[in-house]
C-alpha cells in the first residue's frame, strides 16, 4: 500500500503498521540468562496499528514488550521478518530512503559524536537530510534558542551535561522538519526540568501539525500527551484506541494492569 488512506473522523493516516513480525536469534548466553532452550525469540508478533496526522500515538508496554523493536522497524534501522509498515505512504521495506527523509528518530541508542559542537552537528545532519544552508541556519537559531543550546553552540558535546546532550539529540533529530517524529522513551534518564522541556516540546510539535509516535512505560506521559495508544505485551497489541476508549472511565494505570493480568495471568 503506497497511497495515503484518508479517515475523515481521525484525520489523515500517516503511519500504518501491518502485521509486523520480528524475531531474533538467542545466543547461548542469552538462552542461559532467560533459562530457555528456545533459539529464536519473537520480539514483535503480528503488530498492526495506525497513527494519524497531527496526533501523538503512544506505544505503552513493559520492558521487552517490543516497543523499541517496532520503532526501529518504522525508522528502517531493522527489517521486519513479516508484514510491512508505511510512513506517509512509503513502505519501510521497499522505500527505506524515502521513509528516512520523512521521519525524525530519537532514541538513546543513537549517539552524537562528542568531538563535535552542537553547531557543527546541526549543520552536518541538516546537510545529510538535504536541507539548504539558509534553512539550516534559520532552524538552528530557532531551535537552539528554544532549548537554550545557543550558549553552548560552540562547546564540544562531550563537555556538556546529559540533559543538554539530550536536547541536542532532540533538535538534531528534527533538523529537517520531518512530518513524522518517532521518540523511543523520550524522557528516560532526564532530570525533571529537562523532561518537562521535552514533553512541552512534544505538545508544541503536535500543535504544529506534526505526527508523533512515542514508546514509553510511563503512564503519566501517555495520559498527558497521547491521543491514541496501543498497549503492547509480548510483541502483540492487546489494546488500541483513544485513551477514553481504553480507560473507559478508569485510570490508565489500573486499566493497564487489568489488561496485563488478563493476558499474562497472575505473572507480574
Amino acid at each position: 500500500m503506497t497511497e495515503q488512506a484518508i479517515f475523515p473522523e481521525m484525520g489523515e493516516e500517516i503511519v500504518r503498521a501491518e502485521g509486523l513480525r520480528k524475531t531474533f536469534t538467542l545466543s547461548r548466553k542469552q538462552q542461559k540468562i532467560e533459562k530457555t532452550g528456545i533459539t529464536r525469540k519473537t520480539a514483535v508478533d503480528g503488530l498492526s496499528f495506525s497513527a494519524y496526522r497531527g496526533q501523538i500515538y503512544g506505544l505503552l508496554g513493559p520492558n521487552g514488550a517490543g516497543k523499541t523493536t517496532t520503532l526501529r522497524i518504522l525508522s528502517t534501522l531493522i527489517r521486519p521478518d513479516a508484514g510491512d509498515a508505511f510512513v506517509c505512504g512509503c513502505s519501510v521495506l521497499k522505500e527505506p530512503q524515502k521513509v528516512r527523509d520523512k521521519i525524525g528518530f530519537m532514541t538513546s541508542e543513537l549517539k552524537l559524536d562528542g568531538f563535535f559542537t552542537p553547531d557543527y552537528l546541526f549543520r552536518f545532519f541538516g546537510e545529510m537530510h538535504g536541507v539548504d544552508k539558509d534553512t539550516i541556519e534559520k532552524r538552528k537559531t530557532e531551535l537552539f534558542s528554544r532549548f537554550g543550546i545557543d550558549k553552548f553552540a560552540q562547546v564540544r558535546v562531550k563537555d556538556l551535561s546529559t540533559g543538554m546532550k539530550q536536547k541536542i539529540s532532540l533538535v538534531v533529530s528534527i533538523v529537517h522538519d520531518p512530518d513524522v517524529i518517532i521518540f523511543d522513551e523520550p524522557t528516560n534518564g532526564l532530570d525533571v526540568l529537562t523532561a518537562k522541556v521535552v514533553t512541552d516540546f512534544l505538545a508544541e510539535l503536535k500543535n504544529m501539525g506534526k505526527s508523533i509516535i512515542l514508546s514509553t512505560h510511563i503512564f503519566s506521559l501517555v495520559e498527558k500527551l497521547c491521543d491514541r495508544v496501543s498497549i503492547i505485551i509480548d510483541g502483540k497489541s492487546v489494546a488500541d484506541g483513544t485513551l477514553e476508549d481504553i480507560c473507559a472511565g478508569d485510570t490508565l494505570e489500573s486499566k493497564f494492569f487489568e489488561i496485563y493480568k488478563n493476558v499474562k495471568g497472575d505473572e507480574l
Partner: peptide
C-alpha cells in the same frame, strides 16, 4: 569506534545512501 559508540547508526538514520 563510531559503530561502537552508536554515532554511525545516527548517520544511517538519515536519508543518505
Amino acid at each position: 569506534g563510531e559503530k561502537e559508540r552508536g554515532t554511525l547508526a545516527t548517520i544511517l538514520i538519515t536519508s543518505a545512501r
